[in-house]
Simulated assay, not measured.
Amino acid sequence: MPSGSLVIGAPLVEVFDFLSTPACRPEWQSSLRRVEDVAPAEPGVGQSWIDVTAAGVRPRMETTEHVPPTRWAERGTWGPFAAWLRLDLAPTDGGTEVRWELDLTATGPAGVLARVLKQAAPLAVASDLRRAARLLETRQTR
């Protein structure tokens, strides 16, 4: 599975809360326009929502792991596709290390496209997390 890590210059709890809250995601996830139908309102395993993307894809998302402030994971499904993202967070001298891992699969003929998307997905995840880092670090300097 593709994976990576980065350090965000912000406190662990703040980073966890920002990255694991669906309503914050359009701020840092470049492909996302908004989230809809978040339920329940309180974060936790089983919380679900719909990502409304710029491409018009609307995956149903669900939190599958919620261990504040060190681990969060989600699963998204749309048509024949399924994607998983897990974030592991740990405090560092410079703020918070975020380690991520993802997977993307599809059934039937879409499996070929899933393999291509899986190759590109790490670049998108890394870019989005760098954007989240910039936002969180800017808040620290105010």
Rank of each mutant, 00 (worst) to 15 (best):
M1A: 13
P2C: 14
L6F: 08
V7W: 00
V7I: 11
I8C: 02
L12V: 06
V15D: 00
F16K: 05
S20F: 03
A23E: 13
A23L: 12
P26H: 03
W28E: 05
R33L: 15
R33G: 11
R34S: 14
V35I: 04
D37T: 06
A41P: 15
E42A: 12
G46T: 06
Q47F: 09
Q47C: 08
S48A: 11
A54C: 02
A55V: 13
G56Q: 09
R58F: 03
R60D: 13
T63S: 15
T64C: 00
E65I: 05
V67C: 10
P68I: 01
W78E: 12
A83R: 12
W84P: 01
A90N: 00
T92N: 00
D93R: 10
G94E: 14
G95R: 08
T96P: 00
V98F: 12
E101W: 08
L102A: 15
D103T: 09
D103S: 13
G108H: 04
G108E: 10
G111Q: 10
V112W: 15
L113Y: 09
K118F: 14
A120N: 12
P122M: 08
A124H: 07
V125A: 11
D128G: 06
L129A: 01
L129W: 02
L135M: 09
L136C: 08
T138N: 13
Q140C: 12
R142L: 11
